[in-house]
Nucleic acid binder design. Structure first.
Length: 482
RNA sequence: GCCCCCAUCGUCCAGCGGCCUAGGACUCCGCCCUUUCAAGGCGGCAACGGGGAUUCGAAUUCCCCUGGGGGCACCA
């Protein structure tokens, strides 16, 4: 039987990093088993859905490269894969179940439900609603005939228990006393999550449901409903949840939870996938940097960790640096150029592009987050807006600085073939002449030319900048000193 | 209150009864390389939550406690 899995986000929020991890695991499992990865839009909550969220989810799933084989936005044998298009189907199922005696119209008021829960709390029994606050059969018929609105509840068989084997958690058992007669159809006739999701899983032939642990205790409902529909329940796998640095549920308080924030901050999709995969699964062989393809080859759902994992941006950042360094120059140039040009507010001309290309490899190995490229290259294409204050006071306001700047000016002025090597020779000559250490003698030049003590390698930078500009900047710094 | 899940360095992951004086990665700290910053190399700090039980032997099995997480909606 072909494996069919689905990722079913609700467009009630941006794509969350935790959801992305669930999507990734579904993707990996499907591809590792030559199965089908389906995307479904669980948009039953008419109140909270927005097109903006829907778009955000789609664009970030695509950005991550978690391509789905069938489903929302691309279609397939089951229609639109959007729940809001299937309300009739859900209603049909619910009413069939009512006719079969497996579900019922419920008139229990919120007050009665509260009372039920209050009693349960007082007596220490299960708070799961068991249908005991319903009016008599005659009353139900009359009120229905009167056109009174009711909700449709699933009738959980009690006593009893649902047992199932969760792929990541093992044997699970839930006594039905703990499972409530949940609402399938709201009083306005629209379906709830439990109904819609289960019906779709059945109709779409989902074989494995891989989702967050927050749905673990709802699983008996889904299994019971599936069986009531006369279908075979899927295999379930519940992934542990992602936590914030304080061990509490990952939320905006801890920084960014929206995938878009990471894309904008300059993280690479490969790094993000790799990091998310590492959060709860290990490749084996102590390997940690793994491509999506390799992950597919080696993915095994049953070895996924049961521990809740804390989302640690520092490791993500490290991984991002690894991926940036691994990019080939063409690829890196393609993403870096727009960033530099955007930072400058203009396009680079032909000669500047040459400088850009020459300096790029040096910049690449110093980049962890994409936007840092612009920070490192800015001095090459625009005058120094202001010197970094700390850098200036640290290396410029010293007696050696004047000596170094003057020495560099005259030494560099004599260079006629402006190459890294020639600059190297000239400056080293200056060092011997002035008897300055490399540190003392070169740092002032770096600050003069780049505005900071931190910059790409000096000689290469000077070559890229050109002789005239280099000398001009050294003079400007010298003037500012006196 | 009721039900469920989880428990190894600060963090993620290894470990599935003896190979553990517990391994790798991130972070942090040294040193090396070096014109700065990175990268890289080398080294270091750092953990089996507590208590019982089983066993010749337990990080690994079982029980209890504690701690953390999830669920208990006409939200998904």
């Amino acid at each position: 039987m072909t494996v069919r899995v689905r990722f079913a986000p609700s467009p009630t929020g941006y794509l969350h990093v935790g959801s992305a991890r669930t999507a990734l695991y579904n993707y990996l499992f499907a591809n590792a088993n030559d199965g089908v990865f389906i995307l479904r839009s669980d948009d039953t909550d008419q109140e909270r859905n927005t097109d903006e969220f829907q778009e955000d989810i789609l664009t970030h799933l695509r950005w991550l490269g978690l391509d789905w084989d069938e489903g929302f936005a691309i279609g397939g044998p089951h229609g639109s894969y959007r729940q809001s298009d299937r309300f009739d189907r859900y209603s049909e199922v619910a009413h069939d179940l009512v006719r079969a005696g497996k579900a019922y119209y419920s008139f229990a008021s919120p007050a009665q439900l509260d009372e039920f829960k209050g009693n349960a709390r007082d007596s220490g029994t299960s708070p799961a609603y068991d249908g005991s606050m319903e009016p008599s059969y005659d009353q139900v018929s009359r009120r229905l005939a009167d056109g009174e609105k009711a909700v449709v509840r699933f009738r959980v068989p009690r006593p009893g228990a649902t047992l199932f084997e969760d792929v990541v958690r093992g044997e699970m058992r839930f006594d039905h006393e703990q499972v409530d007669d949940f609402v399938m159809l709201r009083s306005d006739g629209t379906p709830t999550y439990h109904l819609a999701s289960t019906v779709d899983d059945v109709d779409y032939g989902i074989t494995h449901v891989i989702r967050g642990e927050d749905l673990l205790s709802s699983t008996p409902k889904h299994i019971l409903l599936t069986e009531a529909m006369g279908a075979e329940p899927a295999t379930y796998a519940h992934l542990s949840l992602l936590m914030g640095p304080d061990g509490k549920k990952l939320s905006k308080r801890h920084g960014d939870t929206a995938m878009s924030a990471y894309r904008l901050a300059g993280y690479l999709p490969d790094a993000m996938n790799n990091y998310l995969a590492l959060l709860g699964w290990n490749v084996g062989d102590d390997e940690e940097v793994v491509s999506l393809e390799e992950m597919v080859d080696r993915f095994d759902l049953s070895t996924v960790s049961r521990n809740p994992a804390i989302f640690d941006v520092r490791k993500l950042e490290w991984l991002n640096g690894v991926y940036i360094r691994e990019m080939d120059s063409q690829e890196f140039a393609a993403v870096a150029l727009p960033l530099v040009e955007e930072d400058l507010g203009r396009e680079l001309d032909e000669s500047e592009r040459l400088v850009f290309s020459a300096m790029l490899p040096l910049v690449k190995e110093r980049t962890k987050l994409l936007p840092e490229v612009a920070d490192q290259m800015r001095f090459l294409f625009s005058p120094i807006a202001e010197y970094d204050e700390a850098s200036w006071s640290k290396v410029m306001e010293t007696p050696e600085a004047t000596l170094a700047l003057d020495g560099a000016s005259s030494a560099l002025d004599l260079v006629d073939v402006w190459t890294t090597q020639a600059i190297d020779d000239a400056l080293r000559g200056m060092l011997t002449e002035t008897e300055l250490s490399a540190r003392k003698g070169l740092q002032p030049i770096r600050v003069a030319v780049s505005g900071s003590t931190v910059s790409p390698p000096l000689f290469e930078s000077l070559e890229a900048l050109g002789k005239d500009e280099t000398l001009a900047r050294i003079t400007a710094a010298r003037l500012r000193l006196s």
